[in-house]
Amino acid sequence: MDLMDSNGNILSSTAAKNLVSTTGQSSYTFDSTVNQTLNMTWSSWKGTTPLWIGLRYVTSKNQEVRVGLASIAAYQVSLSPTISSSLFPNTTVIKGTGTMPGDTITADADSSAKATVGSDLSYTLNLSSALGSKSNVTVTESDNNGHTGTVTKPVQSALTIAATTPKFNLVPSDAANLASQSDASVLAWLVQQGGVTATDPNSSSSNGITYATKTTGLGGILGGLAIGSSTTINVYATNSAGNTSNPVALTVTRMPGTLSFQTVTSAVDFGSQTIPLTETIYQPTSAFNVSISDTRDAGKNWYVYASAPALTAGSQQFKGNLIYRNSSTQQALNAGMTLIASGSKASGTTNTTVTSDWSSTKGIMLDALPGIYAGSYSTTVNWTLADTPN
């Protein structure tokens, strides 16, 4: 009897036992008391094909015939190493687990480095140099019989980068302002708008981290965006050690811009006054503060109007009105919308305080007439902001 592969090749490492000592027999009955131990060197099989237990016999014509009696299915050893370490450009030690104690661990990052899987299945592979610019590391486990298994893990950037607002809008005023600025200034604006931050896993400090992009002519790109169109700019971080993060994508969309009130005083008081014997103009005890935000293109016009119904104290109507006064001219606010201020969008400016030049001769005041009934009078000033004259 012998051990054979599927092709009849003898794999036994020990001499076969002769079960039939005579010649010329046409049949043979196996005796259950006859035992034979067959030895085999593993490397001669490796489990790659079925293993047969078979007989060899010589025919009357002196031809050797090999007959398989039973087979053992092909057996493949599965080696499944792992990498437990986090991998960075400055990593010099890789740790993980192997499948069988005594197996050899190597890595494509350093052909000279080798480690042995311990009894607890762990390994520590010491590299001769840091991983540097490698993007992935493959660790291979191998045994004495030629079986291998691999695992691959990516090398993380030594710097991590993220953006809290990776997509944001660009209004005309910012586009016009950025168009003439340097790439460094525009990049700083992008980082601020996107909420970009970078951290170094190997350091608790952000000192030495700067931001960069491979895109040039940033001002021209943003300034030239059409309304409704977008552009994406990749920003990455670097540190003083020369490490670079993966890029974070910032998408900027050009919007048409807006015109809106930024600040409107919620309440203004004229204090307690003596009922006048003649028509009297009173100043407010606290100043009006009205400002607008304009992110449209430079040169666009704006107009601020105000109106107010008559002042009342319950059912009693105030004798007089809120007025808008400008030097020697004045207009009652209860007569309809009164133009308070107008102007045009200035380049490089988004906020305008409409009431900045109000004084004792300019602004909203109280025109009181004789014969007022004592009381606490109030009204509501309605403000209107428009981009065309009324």
Rank of each mutant, 00 (worst) to 15 (best):
1 M>H: 15
6 S>H: 15
7 N>R: 14
9 N>Y: 05
11 L>Q: 08
23 T>Q: 15
30 F>C: 07
35 N>G: 05
40 M>L: 14
43 S>E: 09
45 W>G: 08
51 L>K: 09
58 V>L: 09
59 T>Q: 06
60 S>G: 09
75 Y>I: 12
79 L>M: 08
84 S>W: 04
90 N>F: 06
96 G>W: 06
97 T>L: 02
97 T>C: 03
114 K>V: 13
125 L>G: 07
127 L>H: 03
127 L>V: 04
132 G>L: 11
139 V>L: 09
141 E>S: 05
141 E>V: 01
142 S>F: 07
143 D>K: 01
148 T>S: 12
165 T>I: 01
168 F>K: 03
175 A>N: 06
177 N>T: 13
182 S>Y: 01
184 A>Q: 12
185 S>R: 05
186 V>K: 00
187 L>V: 09
191 V>H: 07
205 S>T: 12
210 T>A: 10
212 A>Y: 10
216 T>P: 01
221 I>H: 05
226 A>K: 14
227 I>L: 10
231 T>M: 07
233 I>K: 11
256 P>F: 14
262 Q>L: 11
264 V>I: 10
264 V>M: 08
268 V>T: 13
275 I>Q: 07
276 P>T: 13
279 E>C: 04
280 T>H: 05
288 F>A: 06
289 N>W: 01
292 I>W: 10
298 A>N: 11
301 N>A: 14
309 P>C: 03
309 P>L: 06
318 F>R: 03
326 N>E: 06
327 S>H: 04
333 L>I: 13
338 T>R: 00
339 L>A: 09
342 S>Y: 00
346 A>W: 00
346 A>N: 02
347 S>F: 02
355 T>K: 07
365 M>V: 10
373 Y>N: 15
375 G>E: 06
376 S>E: 11
388 T>Q: 04
390 N>I: 08
